[in-house]
Nucleic acid binder design. Structure first.
Lengths: 174, 174
DNA sequence: GTCTATACCCCGATAGAC
DNA sequence: GTCTATCGGGGTATAGAC
């Protein structure tokens, strides 16, 4: 679903990749495809939260951390030949306003990622209101840059997003 | 397709909304659904290019223009109950790496929007390299903020993207 | 709990009358 | 050029043996 979106991803394909039978899938996910999509979004939530925490832990300066993060995202995209984008965007966008459970899970993912960035900005000395606002824009920009890089099959949007976000963050620290 | 993505949008639904028969659709779009999607993306390209030009023409300062633009996007999203997002994102993401014609059309749309922003930044006195870089990040951030606003059903990401982009642009003018 | 077979539906695309 | 009927295929979900 991360790659193709909700509707283009048949359950059969999922069960085959998982080396499970169709019956098993419906046994563990009685809610069907919708429940499966919610679980996929929640897993993407946790995966990216972990990446965020790791990179911010390794770089005390949040501006440097954002630069490292965009490089990491660019590497992942290029290595997958530009098909593994954000683990929730494709699923969320294809079901927006149609399947509320999935939308809710996606909104929770975005909110959690923002809170991770917020905490790091706070502990780097950024005032609370600025940190809250910046965390929101950091996540938005990362999402948009990854999307643009995927569409263009070029890491330029991610690289530039990194440098510009770093500059923006620095402007709130001085 | 703007609302639901490529796979969730049946041609029958399109033909009904257009008050055309299925035969007519295939008469004018012999390439089938794929050709239809390319045309839809190209139309979205033109629509948003026009909006960009209008708003930048009305505001001589590009930082002010970006603020007006994010307000306009937020209004459009809210009025549609958060379902009319970017006219190409959903279509492009659901077909990335699978239907190259659609991906190419989406890449061209993003590139055209960037060039519109680039021209306006140049004519406001921003140096060429800075303008090129900024134009890329402006489009990325607008895409991401619209996506985040749609998922959260809240215009906060768009509002903050506007103020932060304005600040970023201003930092290159002084 | 696991698996196969299948019910039921809707998709994209086409054929062929008009 | 416009329309209806239909083909072939594949989708989700379930039934029921094991």
């Amino acid at each position: 679903m991360q790659r193709q979106g909700y509707d283009a991803t048949p359950i059969k394909q999922i069960s085959q990749k998982a080396e499970a039978t169709l019956g098993s899938v419906y046994h563990f996910f009685p809610g069907g495809k919708q429940e499966l999509a919610v679980a996929a979004v929640q897993r993407g939530d946790e995966e990216f939260s972990e990446i965020l925490r790791e990179i911010f832990d390794g770089e005390p300066d949040p501006a440097d951390a954002v630069l490292a993060l965009t490089r990491s995202l660019a590497d992942g995209l290029r290595e997958s030949d530009w098909i593994d984008g954000c683990p929730v965007t494709a699923t969320a966008l294809g079901t927006a306003g149609r399947l509320p459970d999935i939308q809710r899970a996606a909104a929770e993912a975005f909110a959690r990622w923002q809170s991770v960035v917020f905490d790091e900005l706070r502990s780097a000395g950024v005032p609370e209101q600025d940190a809250d606002d910046l965390a929101c824009t950091v996540i938005s920009t990362l999402e948009g840059a990854e999307l643009a890089a995927q569409v263009a099959r070029d890491d330029k949007p991610l690289r530039l997003a990194g440098t510009h976000l770093a500059r923006l963050i620095a402007s709130y620290r001085s």
